[in-house]
């Protein structure tokens, strides 16, 4: 990887420069929390944000998207193109960049998902270092670091940024839009110091040893009923999760009833009808089995295919759950063996 150093005062130049030919999405403040939103003025951006309400997946797989337009009379697809305009996701933390790598495994392997791919290919990623917050547990999955999946990564050294350039595109835009200089030994030493302090900042050190084994061995554990009885099946955990990708597909007819659109929307395995099939059968009728399935898939199902868990420890679900259920608590309960 190549590195450059950018003075902090110069950063708005980069954002402004990128804005000339991209839609720039970055963290801004909204009602005391943060969201990823289009940036019209570089001063709006809040690079000191802790986490956003919704994860960046929103910009690669929108909550609702049209897959194709159709004509009912001859069952013909009239249009299945997706126009993915050039876009920058600015200021993504390592956990969120890692989440995109996990989504890539699903959408870009096997049958490629053309909608996701079009957006992914036309999105530039500028990462930003962060400070651990009380709900973060990225450290346990090693997703507090990221080494690919971005174009530029900026590590905050106080008065300047240590910029890692991963791609040609990233190097090009940095060169074009902002004054930067070569890295000195002092810069690298400061970088190491910042990283060292960052690593000390985590408060959750949950034991994830042999988690897949525990999930199978404790499939019938009362732990699941304990958490299940508190779960409201609201699906908030899935909506705010940067790695939950499940969707539903529906057809919508125009008023003429002759044409329409096939649309997909975010879905959640926590919703009761998610696994319902014909003849009133439902493979996960009760809440505890649905809650269990979500953990089972994240920490074992996905792992069995892609050798990583489907979680980056961002802590959004912990903040969103109205019943205070968190992966940290669930894993601790499983490790302890008993109920909470």
């Amino acid at each position: 990887m190549f590195f450059r150093v950018v003075d902090k005062e110069r950063l708005p130049d980069l954002i402004a420069g990128l804005s000339s030919d991209h839609e720039v999405i970055g963290p801004i403040e909204k009602d005391g929390r943060f969201v990823f939103a289009p940036i019209s003025d570089p001063s709006q951006i809040r690079l000191d944000y802790d986490t956003t309400l919704l994860p960046p997946k929103k910009w690669l797989m929108p909550p609702e998207e049209t897959m194709m337009h159709f004509n009912c009379a001859d069952e013909e697809v009239t249009d299945d193109t997706v126009v993915a305009s050039p876009r920058v996701l600015f200021g993504l933390h390592p956990c969120d960049i890692n989440s995109l790598l996990l989504l890539d495994n699903v959408f870009l392997q096997g049958h490629v998902d053309p909608y996701y791919k079009a957006r992914r290919d036309n999105t530039l990623i500028v990462g930003m270092s962060c400070t651990p917050s009380p709900t973060c547990f990225c450290n346990v999955w090693d997703t507090d670091e990221v080494h690919w999946g971005f174009d530029i990564f900026l590590t905050d050294l106080g008065d300047r940024y240590y910029a890692s350039l991963r791609t040609v595109k990233g190097a090009e835009v940095l060169d074009r839009h902002v004054d930067s200089r070569a890295v000195t030994e002092k810069d690298t030493a400061d970088f190491q110091q910042v990283v060292h302090e960052f690593k000390q900042g985590f408060s959750n050190n949950v034991d994830t040893a042999q988690l897949p084994v525990l999930l199978d061995a404790k499939f019938d554990s009362p732990v699941w009923d304990d958490f299940g009885s508190e779960c409201l099946s609201c699906g908030a955990c899935s909506m705010v999760c940067p790695t939950c990708y499940c969707f539903d597909v529906k057809d919508r007819l125009e008023v003429d009833q002759k044409s329409g659109a096939r649309v997909r929307t975010w879905d959640s395995c926590q919703f009761k009808e998610f696994a319902a099939v014909a003849h009133g059968q439902n493979f996960r009728e009760d809440r505890s089995s649905r809650l269990k399935y979500r953990y089972y898939h994240k920490y074992w199902g996905y792992l069995s295919k892609f050798e990583r868990v489907l979680c980056v420890g961002c802590g959004r679900c912990t903040l969103a759950c109205p019943s205070g259920i968190s992966p940290v608590k669930v894993i601790e309960a499983l490790q302890a063996g008993g109920s909470r």
């Binding site: 499940c246 399935y293 199902g301």
Partner: peptide, 9 residues
């Protein structure tokens, strides 16, 4: 992709 047909892992 859609996740609906999950059976075990």
């Amino acid at each position: 992709k859609c996740g609906h047909c999950g059976v075990g892992h």
